[in-house]
Computed example of a mutant assay.
Amino acid sequence: MKGLLLAGGHGTRLRPLTHTGNKHTIPIANKPMVLYAVENLINAGIRDITVILGPMKEGITEAIGSRYPATFHYVEQEPLGLAHAVMKAEPYLDEPFIMHLGDNLLQNGISQFLNRFNETHADAVIGVTPVKDPRQYGVVVLENGRVKKLVEKPRDPPSNLALVGVYVFTPIIHDYTRKLKPSWRGEYEITDVIQMMVDDGKRVEVVHVEGWWKDTGKPEDLLEANQLVLDGLEGTFHHDHATIQGRVQVGEGTVLKENVTIRGPVVVGRNCVIGPNVYIGPYTSIWDGCELSDVEIENSILMKEVKIRGVNARISDSILGNNVVVESKPGIPRVTRLVVGDRSKITLSSP
Score class of each variant (00 low, 15 high):
residue 150 L to Q: 05
residue 130 P to I: 06
residue 128 V to N: 06
residue 257 K to L: 15
residue 234 E to P: 03
residue 3 G to R: 11
residue 10 H to W: 12
residue 311 V to P: 02
residue 184 W to E: 13
residue 14 L to M: 06
residue 60 I to V: 15
residue 308 I to S: 07
residue 300 S to D: 02
residue 81 G to Y: 12
residue 9 G to S: 04
residue 297 I to N: 00
residue 15 R to T: 15
residue 86 V to S: 09
residue 237 F to K: 07
residue 351 P to I: 06
residue 183 S to V: 07
residue 268 V to C: 06
residue 98 I to M: 11
residue 269 G to W: 02
residue 297 I to P: 00
residue 179 K to R: 15
residue 223 L to D: 03
residue 328 S to G: 13
residue 144 N to W: 05
residue 200 D to R: 10
residue 270 R to L: 04
residue 98 I to G: 01
residue 269 G to I: 02
residue 246 G to Q: 08
residue 263 R to H: 00
residue 294 D to I: 00
residue 240 D to G: 00
residue 220 E to W: 08
residue 58 E to H: 13
residue 343 R to P: 01
residue 280 I to M: 07
residue 123 D to C: 11
residue 236 T to L: 03
residue 198 V to R: 12
residue 282 P to D: 03
residue 289 G to T: 08
residue 241 H to V: 12
residue 324 V to Y: 03
residue 275 G to Q: 08
residue 346 I to G: 12
residue 174 H to L: 10
residue 79 P to I: 02
residue 109 G to D: 13
residue 274 I to M: 01
residue 221 D to G: 08
residue 28 I to Y: 06
residue 101 L to D: 11
residue 99 M to E: 09
residue 250 V to P: 11
residue 220 E to H: 03
residue 13 R to Y: 10
residue 313 A to V: 02
residue 160 N to S: 14
residue 4 L to W: 10
residue 324 V to N: 05
residue 15 R to G: 01
residue 30 N to F: 01
residue 36 Y to F: 15
residue 5 L to W: 10
residue 307 K to D: 03
residue 216 T to Q: 08
residue 228 L to N: 12
residue 107 Q to E: 15
residue 132 K to G: 03
residue 274 I to L: 05
residue 334 R to L: 00
residue 258 E to H: 13
residue 126 I to V: 14
residue 38 V to N: 04
residue 321 G to R: 12
residue 21 G to L: 00
residue 273 V to P: 00
residue 112 Q to Y: 01
residue 215 D to S: 13
residue 164 V to M: 12
residue 346 I to C: 06
residue 186 G to M: 09
residue 325 V to D: 04
residue 199 D to F: 05
residue 173 I to F: 10
residue 229 V to G: 09
residue 56 M to R: 15
residue 266 V to H: 06
residue 130 P to K: 13
residue 60 I to Y: 09
residue 260 V to C: 02
residue 205 E to Y: 10
residue 190 I to L: 15
residue 123 D to P: 14
residue 151 V to Q: 06
residue 345 K to R: 15
residue 59 G to N: 13
residue 153 K to W: 00
residue 12 T to L: 10
residue 201 G to Q: 06
residue 97 F to T: 06
residue 348 L to K: 09
residue 90 E to P: 08
residue 101 L to P: 02
residue 48 D to E: 15
residue 233 L to N: 07
residue 138 G to W: 08
residue 234 E to V: 09
residue 216 T to C: 13
residue 310 G to L: 04
residue 334 R to A: 14
residue 87 M to C: 04
residue 17 L to M: 03
residue 219 P to H: 08
residue 125 V to E: 09
residue 225 A to T: 13
residue 149 K to T: 14
residue 54 G to I: 14
residue 70 A to C: 07
residue 114 L to D: 06
residue 343 R to V: 01
residue 125 V to G: 09
